[in-house]
Design a protein around this nucleic acid. Structure first.
Lengths: 333, 333
DNA sequence: TTGTAAGCGTTATCAT
DNA sequence: ATGATAACGCTTACAA
């Protein structure tokens, strides 16, 4: 069925070593035999067996990616970048959806180890000691995306959450708002939670604005429904607010939905800025002003780092720039 | 670094054959040696090398998935189902983003062939003769998702587009609308284009409604921007419309945006029903009434079919049921 | 320039 | 119940 290097060698009247040489274009054969080999490869439709290669080279040209959720809008965009860059460098990517579940994650890590992937990309999730030990056992490059580890020396690529949140809040302030609330993630989340809250507070303090704790509504996730309920309870507590910074686009869209239900007009009554710039930010009504994270490039950069690491080079952790994307959900006061 | 079966054998004072036996729990050893082997496996932290296994078993437990776009909301949901089911059966999935590009697709097919994947899932794209020949050359199970082939005998899983579009239109009719337009894909698209148009026309004809061609606005894609422009030109041509069936949620959301800009109220002035039921349908303002495609289950089913096929069983093409999800974008007349 | 042969880490077929 | 050993399809010294 699938012809092997043996078949090619036989038909071309050379040894498998020679075929292997032209395949990997190493020196050691005449132009004539090269042609002959190439012809019979063509004739047979021969394709090298990557599995056999992997066995001898101890290299699979495959990288594993662990996501907390594949169906999430956010993961999809990161995956896109990873996939593109990986294939561009001749690598394939195996996707794993951990669902933020310990057992699943461990299982996946085992599978990826058995499959001898050359590198690992770990997205949007905290690295526990258990995971870290597993990483070490695999002895391959690991890079973190949209997360980082304070305890373990793992390179990462992400944006500066604190700074980005500052920029979002700052925008609201510059547009003349003084009563600004925030719909945030959990303060216990050291990656996407507290830094964004700090960024908000920083901007507020700097502008001499009120810093009451009750101004920030903390949610247990960054999803739509939390935005919805978060908006209601926040506005209930602080009807005087004219602007809100939501720590994710989903949260922001949830807030917009809730506002719509309560006949609060966006942005006429209250302005909103989101965070992420997912595809859906642009589709929102009104289109959402938000902080863009360069998801695609984050994925690409992560792959580049993995590849550098595989080549024995250093790979510096990277902070990618965020960007304020102005659309129609903020009104000047 | 990574211990091999040799290391285990040596340390346990048995042959590699015996270790292999307990690993694959085949008969042929005493309970005592089994324990000893298991212990030393534990001790060494041995994990079998799937690459070596793949070489001898001619089976990689890996399936390749080809998408026209990974960042699309739709693909993400299908991928989720595929990933879950695949891992549940001990298979990994390699993702490939063809970007609907011939060269890329061919390149990916080659890579997947070299990597000796056990099966292929081909999503939302037309199967050309070239692709089909490549499939045949690989000699592995292939299943189509959200598409089908009239020329080649490839099993598929999808919904009945014609019927689903009929149901959407029918809903509008039952809600008392008589002037109903459609924002559609390309009539030349035999999968997601013409069948949905036909479903719409079927319902209209059945209800004795007008069937003018100008009532359906055809777009070159199913994306947001087309929905936006499509809505404007359709309403311009037919200001009397009170309802629109959009052939995708993105198209529908685009229409809603355009309506918002032109101060046309949804659903008070015109009702809209979408198609797909993406996550974003629920987040829309107003929440979108739409036809749900069971993307997750489609992915799962496809994997199940691949697995059945690998086991030499038959796999029937499957039409999964669609469902009308009623939210707030349709108003009774 | 070319070929032989020893691995790579398994499984599977024989013997014993 | 166990152990040699030949594959699996390739790469890479080492010979010639």
């Amino acid at each position: 069925m699938n012809p092997t290097i043996q078949d090619v060698a036989r038909l071309a009247n050379v040894s498998i070593a020679t075929v292997s040489r032209v395949l990997n274009n190493q020196p050691g054969y005449s132009e004539k035999t090269k042609q002959k080999v190439l012809e019979t490869i063509e004739e047979l439709g021969y394709q090298p067996n990557a599995i056999a290669r992997g066995l001898v080279n101890r290299k699979t040209s495959t990288i594993g990616v662990l996501f907390p959720s594949v169906s999430g809008l956010l993961s999809a965009e990161i995956l896109h970048g990873i996939e593109a860059k990986a294939h561009q460098h001749g690598n394939s990517v195996i996707v794993c959806n951990t669902a933020e579940n310990r057992e699943k994650t461990i299982k996946y890590l085992q599978v990826l180890r058995e499959k001898r992937v050359d590198g690992l990309i770990f997205v949007s999730e905290e690295v526990t000691e258990e995971y870290y030990e597993l990483f070490r056992g695999m002895d391959i490059p690991v890079v973190l995306v949209s997360t980082q580890s304070y305890q373990y020396p793992l390179p990462y690529v992400k944006v500066d959450d604190r700074h980005a949140a500052y920029a979002a809040t700052r925008h609201l302030i510059e547009e003349g708002h003084t009563k600004i609330g925030m719909i945030a993630g959990s303060p216990d989340d050291p990656i996407a939670g507290s830094p964004r809250i700090e960024g908000y507070r920083l901007a507020m303090r700097e502008a001499g604005r009120s810093l009451e704790d009750s101004l920030v509504e903390t949610c247990s996730s960054f999803q739509y429904n939390d935005g919805k309920s978060g908006f209601s309870s926040l506005m209930n507590r602080h009807p005087e607010l004219t602007a809100i910074f939501a720590a994710s686009d989903e949260l922001a869209i949830g807030a917009i939905s809730a506002a719509y239900k309560e006949s609060i007009r966006i942005p006429d009554d209250v302005s909103i800025v989101g965070y992420d710039n997912l595809l859906l930010a642009e589709m929102s009504v009104p289109p959402l002003t938000t902080i863009a994270q360069p998801f695609g490039r984050m994925g690409e950069r992560a792959v580049q780092m993995i590849i550098d690491l595989m080549n024995g080079e250093e790979a510096e952790s990277t902070i990618l720039p965020h960007e304020l994307v102005i659309r129609d959900s903020v009104k000047r006061r």
